[in-house]
Every structure is written in C-alpha cells, then in structure tokens.
Design a binder for these strands. Structure first.
Lengths: 134, 134
DNA sequence: GTTATTGCAAAGGCTTTGCATTACG
DNA sequence: CGTAATGCAAAGCCTTTGCAATAAC
C-alpha cells in the first residue's frame, strides 16, 4: 500500500506538478528497493494505471532525476537503471544474472590522496562487477 | 604509422586469427589514447580499409574485449566506449562536452575496509562526472 | 481560455542477426 | 575442400520526438 498523498506532497515540494500518472509512477519507483529499467517501471505501474504510456514513464523518470528525487545509473553493458536511494553508495552487478544490488559506502573508501585539480566533481559512480559466490 | 606486423603478432598471441579488417581495426583502436565508440572506430578505420562493415567492427571489438586486449567501458548516459589502456585506472566524463579522460589510479584509493564477502570481484569501475574548470 | 500533460505512433540511434559470399588453412 | 571471417541489409532493442487530444489551472 502506497501513500499517494505523501507522494503528491513530495512532488509538489520539489516543483513537480502532480498528475495521476506522475503520482503512480513516483509512488512505485520511489519506494522500490530494486534498480528497475524504464521498461520495468512501466510494466510495474501499468496494471494499476491503464492510462499510462511509455513516453510518460520516460518523461516522469527524467523529471524525477532532474528534480533530485531519483538517481539514474549506468550499469555495465550500457544498461540504464533508476535508483531511489539518494544516499551515496556503490553498486554491485552480478555478471551471471545481471542483478544490481547496493554496496554500502564504507565498502570502499574513496580517499582523494592525490588532489584532483581543474575539475568540478559532480558525482562519483562506483560499479563493482563480479559473481556471487555459492 | 602503425606497425601491422606487431599488431598481427599480438592478435595471434591472444588466439585471434588475423585478417585484413581485424588488423586494421586493432591497429587503430589499440593505440588510440581516446575512448572511442564503436562507430567512431568505424569512422576512423574506414578510410584506409574500404572493405569494412559495421558488423565486422562490432565483431572485432567484442573479440578484442573477450580476449583481454581491450576494455569496454560504460559511461554516464548509457554510452559504451572502448579503452585500450589495460592498466587499472579511473575515468572522468566532462558533462559539458561528453569527453572521457583518464584519471590515475592514485587519484582515489579504494580501500576495502569493510571486507566484501560472498562476492568474486572481477572489476571495479569508477566514473567521475563533472565539469572542467576554466 | 490558456498552459501543461498525455497518448500514440512514428522516427531515431545503436547494436545484433541471418544468410549468402569470400577468403583462408 | 572445409572452416572461418566478412558484407549487407534487415530486424531488434531502447529511447526520443511531434502532434493532436485531454486535463489542469
């Protein structure tokens, strides 16, 4: 069960005019612990929102990213996925299944020991590829 | 001027059967200091190798990656580029121009202080996004 | 009423695929 | 000869675009 009222407020607070479609998309994607692709978002929200087109999903996702409610990740292989977890953290991609999972920030400490000059760093993305041991 | 003989030998050493197209592609992509996309490789090699199709370029690039002569990177925005520099290092993507450049490994020290368990790490990709200062 | 949002379908990149042709061992 | 590599064009994703219809202010 998702609180649409809370989502609506959150959208407004971030300067996004709510609409049935936007609230439905946001309510789902902002609470998932998964790392869905645009199409997975569409597939997940469609059943409860028959009036929803792919274009609107892309539209809404980009809007959420632009307004800072969602992060867009680029995973090995060129896949683009979305991540509602805003706190800095890293990612692990299972080469076998393609699944994406979070790695806590402390797993790797990025210590600038050689100062990076001439660059305004906006974001550091760390993607670990490998295999789950069994 | 590129030494085709050396490239040919290198391909053979890595179990790749040389051909005119493969040597031409490899000779260019393995010596560039850039981070070209598949299409940029095609555009660069085509003039000196009229008998070259896009399919063969993709084919050859994937072969080089598979055999460990080339690395495939996934850059912010879902772009896939290739990097002949095999030594571990990081990458910087200029948000303005989209250009990719290398960052020395020492720029960031990745210190596993919380041991990563249950995972066979194959590769750690660090991509820094931001802007060049002027 | 005027502006913003949406759906639809078409168009656009980029990459892969299938198959006949050509080159190689 | 038999196998491997290539070219070509078509097909496949995924994503964006244009425009008319709809809904919101």
């Amino acid at each position: 069960m998702v609180e649409f009222a809370a989502v609506t407020k959150r959208l407004k607070d971030h300067g996004i005019q709510p609409s049935a479609q936007r609230v439905a998309v946001a309510a789902w994607v902002l609470q998932t612990s998964d790392h869905p692709s645009a199409d997975q978002v569409f597939a997940a929200v469609r059943p409860s929102q028959a009036m929803l087109s792919r274009a609107t999903v892309y539209n809404t996702l980009h809007l959420l990213v632009e307004k800072g409610l969602l992060r867009q990740l680029t995973i090995a292989g060129g896949r683009v996925v979305f991540d509602p977890k805003l706190e800095p953290h890293h990612h692990f991609v299972d080469d076998d299944s393609g699944e994406v999972s979070d790695l806590p920030l402390e797993t790797f400490r990025l210590t600038p020991e050689m100062p990076v000059t001439g660059i305004d760093i906006r974001e550091v993305e760390v993607v670990v590829r490998g295999r789950r041991q069994r």
